[in-house]
Design a protein around this nucleic acid. Structure first.
Lengths: 113, 113
DNA sequence: CCCAGTACTTTGCATTGCAAGGTAGCTTAA
DNA sequence: TTAAGCTACCTTGCAATGCAAAGTACTGGG
């Protein structure tokens, strides 16, 4: 009987994770911590254990590529960037997201008969 | 390497399912087919196997109640309505959804440095 | 009676976010 | 050079949950 909004919030977040991650990378090639920071700024909390496997999956699907880059302080970093396919896919996700927003507005704003 | 937008669309849908279902019921008490039709209209395709267990869960959480009602043609129907708790919860979801939309806009629209 | 239609329910599977723990490179300071 | 601390990446196991598919049951028409 726990009415946990956090649970639903997390559920909603799930659906847009890939979309947001690809968007962040589109703007600038980024490594995991960059992405985590950006998402955190936007209040889209994501943790390492979620992000790393997802990046790997996106790479395996051919949407991302990466290169190793030395760091001035600490271990080397994997910088991810969008491939051409990833670019196209992201464009489709833009549409998908907008359609979802429309659909939700439609559903939630409809007045009683 | 399958670049299936449908998969992501479905993923996005997941997150807002509860929210949309509660919204539909808020407008008018409804039984499963009503809800399916409304969501289908909005292009939020959902299937029986998803909806029924979800309705049961929402009922068990105290967000919905139901009554049986005879049908003019066919078996009786379970009409669901929002409880007071469900009402309150839905209001919170309104906020949660709006916050998510803001967060996504923020993330996807940010320009490169 | 059977058949078609409607409605509700259940089972099993696959996906996936997340908590938690692990490995390893690099820097700094004793 | 060793230890501590930070950063970065990776893995494992679990829990939640949408969905396909199959099952049950009630109703009315031929």
């Amino acid at each position: 009987m726990e009415m946990n909004t956090e649970k639903v919030r997390s559920q909603m977040r799930k659906g847009v994770l890939e979309y947001c991650i690809l968007s962040v990378i589109k703007n600038n090639d980024a490594y995991a911590s960059d992405i985590l920071d950006t998402l955190k700024e936007a209040k889209l909390i994501v943790v390492e254990g979620t992000l790393y496997p997802l990046l790997t999956r996106l790479k395996n699907e051919g949407l991302l590529h990466y290169r190793w880059e030395e760091s001035a302080s600490g271990p080397p970093r994997k910088y991810y960037g969008l491939t051409e396919i990833g670019q196209k896919f992201l464009n489709e996700l833009d549409t998908t997201w907008k359609e979802l927003v429309t659909a939700v507005e439609l559903t939630t704003s409809k007045k009683s008969k």
